[in-house]
Design a protein around this nucleic acid. Structure first.
Length: 462
DNA sequence: TGAAATGTTGGGGCG
DNA sequence: ACGCCCCAACATTTC
């Protein structure tokens, strides 16, 4: 099928980059003409009306400036089959997705393409290790992170970067313009103040991280008012840079600065948690709906819409919680430490089902990633693989005092408490004069904690 | 990647 | 000088 004059399709999905893109590179190497397509796949298009639809629009806009991308809306299978028939395509290339519905769709499309004598070639463009290639000595999948990641580090084979420097093969087709995908931002226009979607923005973030942040990473990453996290996650989600590129770059940094080993290894292990999440989703496809630990099936979740709304809107009366939820709404992200605190609060102070929290994050996070999001919620809830034990309950006041001792983070997002002395900034209800325009704490944390522990005790008995 | 409850130790005030 | 108490500081256990 390697004819000199053959035409191929490269199907862009969550790999919106040119550099180090194995599927795109193979199509480019083996064919004389390549049609890049992006399909807003109607049966799976759960991205519209979320924060990510804004990012997708921006990212595609940027990518289109470099190479021709042909836009389509519809059923991916129908779109691809029709294009193949119309334009005498010999092969379709893509990089693999790992969400259960995507796997099913792609497998099916592969079969349909074969039926009309079109090759379908998938590559790994998103993960350092394929989920099915990392198994323990019993031949089962790992359920604990540390041995999993140790094994990964041993078996990672880092390919040389795939480089394309001639874009003339990427041809145009009759197709929609980007605006016709209707990827309109649904609420905030402020994302643009915080983010630069696209490959260049991603590379910039990576370089900034190496230059200014990595040397403080292990400790600094815990403090939401400081700026020592990479903020690469939305770029990674959309595949604007490859995990190998990060891996190679960070490894090289480590060779140049051996004293930075603790920081570099810690950062790489965060990449490892991303891998582990995909891995868990692959081996436990019900991750988004079912407790990994089945005993949580009997947890008496509270179906409290009013409490849920207060949490979503940042009106709980706990400054660190409200700061996080407001940061999320405005910027499309939330500092990782604060994500753990707000998630713990939803599950263990309000007793609201972790699935509802995860769904809200799906809608509002620019980096929302089915695997990482749901694996992390189950981790916090205690129902997940290698999860935090349920009795590890975050105290929102103490966490605030520990990790935002000067209240800098809280003041930025909760101006109602900004005038209070530090002593009261994480518990304004104890201040001699309470702020007038702020909320009463919606629960008593000490009581909620005891209740959580009793629920948990009951689970263990049942 | 927790925090409360409980246990232990040792210095200092004081009769 | 001694025993007693208090309690801060740290360690361990428990959820």
């Amino acid at each position: 099928m390697r004819s000199v004059m053959s035409k191929a399709i490269f199907w862009f999905r969550n790999d919106l980059r040119i550099a180090d893109n194995p599927g795109l590179f193979q199509a480019y190497k083996q064919h004389s003409e390549v049609f890049c397509v992006y399909i807003l796949d109607k049966p799976l298009a759960n991205i519209t009306r979320t924060a990510q639809s804004w990012w997708l629009h921006q990212s595609l806009t940027t990518l289109k400036k470099t190479i021709n991308i042909n836009m389509f809306v519809g059923d991916a299978e129908e779109v691809l089959l029709e294009l193949c028939r119309k334009h005498d395509i010999t092969a379709v290339y893509w990089n693999r997705c790992y969400e259960p519905l995507h796997i099913a769709r792609d497998t099916h499309i592969k079969q349909q393409l074969h039926k009309i004598n079109v090759q379908a070639k998938s590559a790994n463009g998103s993960l350092l290790n394929e989920p099915w290639e990392v198994l323990n000595k019993q031949g089962e999948f790992f359920k604990v992170f540390t041995p999993y990641w140790k094994q990964c580090l041993q078996q990672i084979v880092c390919p040389a970067p795939f480089i394309i420097n001639d874009y003339s093969k990427f041809a145009k087709l009759p197709s929609l313009c980007l605006e016709e995908l209707n990827l309109l931002p649904t609420w905030q226009q402020q994302f643009t103040n915080y983010w630069q979607p696209g490959e260049a923005g991603a590379e910039q973030k990576l370089q900034d991280f190496l230059a200014y942040k990595l040397e403080h990473y292990k400790e600094g990453r815990n403090y939401p008012a400081s700026n020592f996290t990479s903020n690469l996650s939305p770029h990674l989600h959309f595949g604007e840079l490859s995990p190998w590129h990060i891996f190679r770059t960070v490894r090289e940094f480590q060779i140049n600065y051996p004293a930075q080993e603790a920081n570099t290894m810690h950062f790489l292990s965060e990449l490892g948690w991303r891998e582990f999440s995909y891995y868990l989703l692959y081996h436990f496809p019900k991750l988004t709906s079912a407790n990994f630990k089945a005993q949580f099936d009997n947890f008496p979740w509270h179906d409290n819409d009013e409490a849920f709304t207060r949490w979503k809107r940042g009106k709980t009366g706990f400054p660190i919680i409200d700061a996080g939820m407001r940061e999320l709404w405005v910027t499309g992200t939330m500092h990782n430490r604060v994500r753990m605190i707000v998630a713990s609060f939803l599950v263990k102070d309000l007793f609201i089902d972790w699935r509802r929290g995860a769904q809200w994050f799906d809608e509002t996070l620019l980096d929302a990633d089915m695997a990482s999001n749901y694996a992390s919620w189950q981790w916090v809830a205690g129902s997940g693989a290698d999860a935090a034990p349920y009795f590890r309950i975050f105290n929102p006041i103490l966490q605030g005092e520990k990790f935002d001792s000067q209240g800098d983070y809280v003041k930025k997002w909760v101006p109602e408490v900004a005038h209070l002395p530090n002593k009261f900034i994480h518990k304004p209800w104890e201040a001699p004069t309470k702020p007038l325009n702020y909320y009463e704490p919606m629960v008593n944390h000490d009581i909620a904690r005891k209740k959580a522990l009793s629920y948990y005790q009951a689970l263990r008995m049942s």
